[in-house]
Simulated scan of single mutants.
Amino acid sequence: MQFFLMGYIIIEICEIFTIGGFPLNGAVRRAFSAVHIAAIIATLWILMMNGAVGYQLVDDGTPLSIGLIFGSAAVLFIGTGYIALDTGFSWTTYWDSALDAPNRTYSLYILYQLVPLVFLVVFFILETVLVLRVLGEVKPMGYLIGAALLFAIGQIFQYVISVHICSRTNGAINGGMFETLFTLFSVVCIWQFWSSITEDDWPMAAPGGSTYT
C-alpha cells in the first residue's frame, strides 16, 4: 500500500503542472502530462494488485510479492509514458494523426480514462468479495463504500459541474480543485479500509490458549 501512496503523491505533483494552470513551456507541460498519465496507470494497477494480494495467492510483503507488484507497475509506467511522450513529441510519427484536427487521441483516451476505471472496478469487486465472503466482516465496507462515493463525487465535479463553476467565476477556478479534494478524501478512506483488514488489527490468540483477546 505504500507504493500506492507514493504513486498518488506523484500524481498530485504532476497535476499541479498539468491541470493546475501553472505557467510552463509547452514541451515541459507535455512531459509532465505524460508522467501524469503513466503515474495514474501504474498507481491504480498497484491498487488493484493490492486487492488481489489479499487472497494470499502470493504471501504479502515477501520479495516475490513486492517484486511482482512493483515490476509490473514499472512496465506499465514506462510503456504508458512512452506512448504519451511519443504522441506529444512525435518521435516516431506513429501517433501523428492525433495532432491533426479534431485531435482525437484514442490511445491516450483509453489509457487515461478507461483503463484506470477498469482497475478501480476490479479492485472494488475484489475487496468486496474478500471482506464479505472471505473475512465475513461488514464494518470495513463502510470505508470502501465511502471511498467509492467520494471518488465518484470528485469525478462529477471534474466532468459535470466544472464547466458551471468555471463560467460563474470567469475562469478563476474550476472543478479540478474539488476533484482533487474529494480524491484525497477517497484515498484516506482506502487507507483506513486497508488498515481495518490487515492482520495487525485482528484479534490475536492469547498465549497458551485458544481464546482471542
Rank of each mutant, 00 (worst) to 15 (best):
M1L: 02
M1G: 01
F3D: 05
F4P: 06
L5N: 08
G7K: 00
Y8Q: 10
I9M: 10
I10D: 03
I10G: 05
I10S: 13
I11Q: 00
I11P: 00
I11C: 04
E12W: 12
C14W: 07
C14R: 10
I16V: 15
I16C: 09
F17C: 08
T18D: 02
T18I: 11
T18G: 03
I19Y: 11
G21S: 06
F22V: 14
P23Y: 08
L24D: 01
L24T: 14
L24I: 12
R29P: 03
R29K: 15
A31T: 15
F32Y: 14
H36A: 11
H36K: 14
A38L: 02
A38R: 00
I41H: 00
I41C: 02
L44V: 07
L47N: 12
M48H: 10
G51N: 07
G51Y: 04
G54N: 10
Y55L: 05
Q56M: 08
Q56C: 04
L57I: 09
L57N: 08
D59N: 11
D59P: 02
D60S: 12
S65R: 11
F70K: 12
S72F: 06
F77I: 11
I78A: 11
G79D: 01
T80P: 02
G81V: 12
Y82M: 10
A84I: 09
T87Q: 09
F89D: 07
S90G: 10
S90V: 14
W91D: 01
W91T: 04
T92W: 06
T92M: 07
T93S: 10
S97P: 00
S97Q: 11
D100T: 12
A101W: 04
N103W: 06
T105E: 09
T105C: 09
Y109G: 09
I110L: 12
I110T: 13
Y112E: 09
Q113A: 05
Q113T: 10
L117V: 09
V118K: 07
L120W: 01
V121T: 13
V122K: 00
V122Q: 02
V122D: 02
F123M: 03
F124V: 15
I125L: 14
T128S: 15
T128H: 06
V129T: 14
V131G: 07
V134C: 04
G136W: 05
E137L: 15
K139G: 08
M141V: 04
G142T: 01
G142C: 01
Y143H: 15
L144H: 01
G146H: 07
G146T: 02
G146W: 06
A152D: 04
A152V: 08
A152G: 03
I153A: 11
Q155R: 15
Q155H: 08
Q158L: 13
V160C: 04
I161T: 04
I161R: 03
H164C: 01
I165E: 03
S167H: 09
T169K: 01
T169D: 01
N170M: 13
G171I: 01
A172R: 15
A172W: 11
A172E: 06
N174E: 07
G176I: 04
M177H: 13
M177L: 12
L181R: 06
L181I: 14
L181Y: 11
F182Q: 05
F182A: 04
T183S: 09
S186D: 06
V187P: 01
C189F: 13
I190Q: 02
F193E: 02
I197F: 03
I197Q: 05
D201K: 15
D201L: 15
P203E: 09
P203L: 13
